[in-house]
Design a protein around this nucleic acid. Sequence first.
DNA 1: TATGAATGAGTATTCATTCAT
DNA 2: CATGAATGAATACTCATTCAT
Lengths: 216, 216, 216, 216
Amino acid sequence: MHSEIRSANQPKPSFIETARRAQIIDCAVEVIAELGFAQASLAQIAKRAGVSTGVILYYFAGKDDLIREVGVHVFTTGRSSIEPLVQQQLDARSALRTFIEASVAYIAANPKKVLAIMNILRAGRSDGGTLKIDPTVYQPRQIGFRNILEWGQRDGEFRTFSVAVMVETIVEALDAIPSQLAADPSLDLDAYAKELVELFDRATRADTPVQELRVR
Amino acid sequence: MHSEIRSANQPKPSFIETARRAQIIDCAVEVIAELGFAQASLAQIAKRAGVSTGVILYYFAGKDDLIREVGVHVFTTGRSSIEPLVQQQLDARSALRTFIEASVAYIAANPKKVLAIMNILRAGRSDGGTLKIDPTVYQPRQIGFRNILEWGQRDGEFRTFSVAVMVETIVEALDAIPSQLAADPSLDLDAYAKELVELFDRATRADTPVQELRVR
Amino acid sequence: MHSEIRSANQPKPSFIETARRAQIIDCAVEVIAELGFAQASLAQIAKRAGVSTGVILYYFAGKDDLIREVGVHVFTTGRSSIEPLVQQQLDARSALRTFIEASVAYIAANPKKVLAIMNILRAGRSDGGTLKIDPTVYQPRQIGFRNILEWGQRDGEFRTFSVAVMVETIVEALDAIPSQLAADPSLDLDAYAKELVELFDRATRADTPVQELRVR
Amino acid sequence: MHSEIRSANQPKPSFIETARRAQIIDCAVEVIAELGFAQASLAQIAKRAGVSTGVILYYFAGKDDLIREVGVHVFTTGRSSIEPLVQQQLDARSALRTFIEASVAYIAANPKKVLAIMNILRAGRSDGGTLKIDPTVYQPRQIGFRNILEWGQRDGEFRTFSVAVMVETIVEALDAIPSQLAADPSLDLDAYAKELVELFDRATRADTPVQELRVR
DNA sequence: TATGAATGAGTATTCATTCAT
DNA sequence: CATGAATGAATACTCATTCAT
């Protein structure tokens, strides 16, 4: 019945199971966002969900499994709200701008989810040294940025730079937002997005055509 | 015996005490860097140091005290190796470049120390909600960057942008390095520094005088 | 699950919970009575109960909570076995006699419980300076004696004396019994009670009517 | 050099040793009186004395030994200030009154010492089940009261009663004072003594000659 | 499905004591 | 004489996990 076993023989999760899993993931997100990853015990999460800790372990193979699924959930929903917008863009520069804007918008719309993820990712490794969230879950974002940057470099929109460094810098700039927002909920995220767009537009664009970035 | 008490009445820590404290701090750094903050129990640190956990609590008032001193140690040595170089610079642009280069150089020279600090800072808050490392210890860096950016804006070297956002982005770009280096020890940090310098030079500089940044 | 939380939302403790709590309280009483409060670690109590220490902390919020509940348990049962008898008395002199007799009888019937309580109360304060058992739990006894003494003084049965001093002396005379009984289990408590009744009857009664105390 | 060894071969404790032992005993008294026995660690006592814990263990065979000597010290000085006064009395009734008064006076003059002793005696037994203070140290007081009571009964001054019960009651009445005094330092001990004298005079005296107790 | 009960390993911390210097 | 260093056992407590019901 645990997720691994499930995927093998039980193709159809019941309605109640789906609901329970979603509920538990939501509660885990809240607790991790509010108390931090270290304080987020199964007992706390269960308490928030109004169930016993046994329920969590009935639906998830263990704490690690739950955390992993929290990661999958947040990154999946994030991706689905960002990717379509980016794919509409016709040039790399617009795509980069859109990616940043959509990312910040997603943070603004889901501050707890994103904060929870950051708390998890930044809490370091698990006991065995493995990461708490599988790279395949969070790397698509890096890959997305990488593709855009390489696209822009191919098309001559972007200057020559290390794509790896630029990706890392962009991603970290975005990842720094959730905790700032938690510390100061009045933070103006629209303005923040505009600053980041301008910052990375200047950081990436090719020199010669000093074409101005159109404000939307 | 413990640091707080010490500073009041006992001006001269013995040689052996100084050595032990340094040794324990070093071992704490290693364990935190290698296993992550959550796995860094006193037992682990003591094991690494080849002493009993009692020894740690003999020299430090508690785990919190040890962690705090790790923070002080790393930030103090970091600052002393960076600040003098930055202060020699005559214009904001050079100061920013130097600050970034010196920061990366410090990471290259002390990868474990910096990784440990990142693991601590990113592990979130303690039980009581207080930070594990006092802001007065790590904020001088932010203030340093802020001063440089404001200086450049005043002097017209830098364009208009949100200093807060830029500082955060720069700092996060630097803070992302230690874990990358841990994952790939062959990472070329000189090149990484050059990329960041170029990136933030373009992100900050004023438009008109398209003066090229001299490569050192 | 823990007592405080329980009283708020969970009106029906399960049978097994009630039994376990009672069992743990009993074992705590035994250990505290036999080894003294200082030696009564959770490990000792758990060992006596044949469970792991975790079980104790599953049913009680902590050691302090357990100790507090031991106090409540003993004082509550003690009070319920003493108070009704006292309240039947029509004059203060009989009430005082009955109170003393019933108190000794309760000690005779529950030597370990009372010894445990004495060990707790006399072990001094907790770390924070707070008492280990709430005054509201053990002060009703003092108040009971006080009321009787004041009643007798009002009615002229008792002479003039400091009620506070007399209460303290009576209570201490009773509290001295459990440890004497532990040291010498053959102690004749009926005789002891008669002695105390006579002692405090003479100590309290008014001078003029040299009316003899009727032996019951 | 430890006390047991000492008594065998070193008949003359040096001046410095005598002073150190006295100093440590005094500090132990203070700490035990102020913090309670449970909180009175060797470290606390050493801190109060301004020495290292090693010093304590140099002059005393262990913590138990120190505690024992605290007991000896307080009971010895107490006895020497009480016994001479009692021995001057020519009748048992006066002796009893004097014993009580002198005991309270000693408490008034040495509240910390007596409170410390009470904290020790009431903290229960040591690890091995042995008492923390040897009975030969504190029983002379009981014997003193016993002798007086038997004397009075032989001479017809006192009525017939259980000497054991009366002794215990008197002693407990006195032992209850130090903690009351600590809780309320403004407690009027002269009045308290008068109350106890009157209380036990009435409790003990023979019926027929209703001779009034002369107020001194 | 879900609960409540129980465990056992792991946490930081305290403390009396030993010992080399 | 005295210190400071170090230990090891014991402390209360947390938590993920197991399991019978």
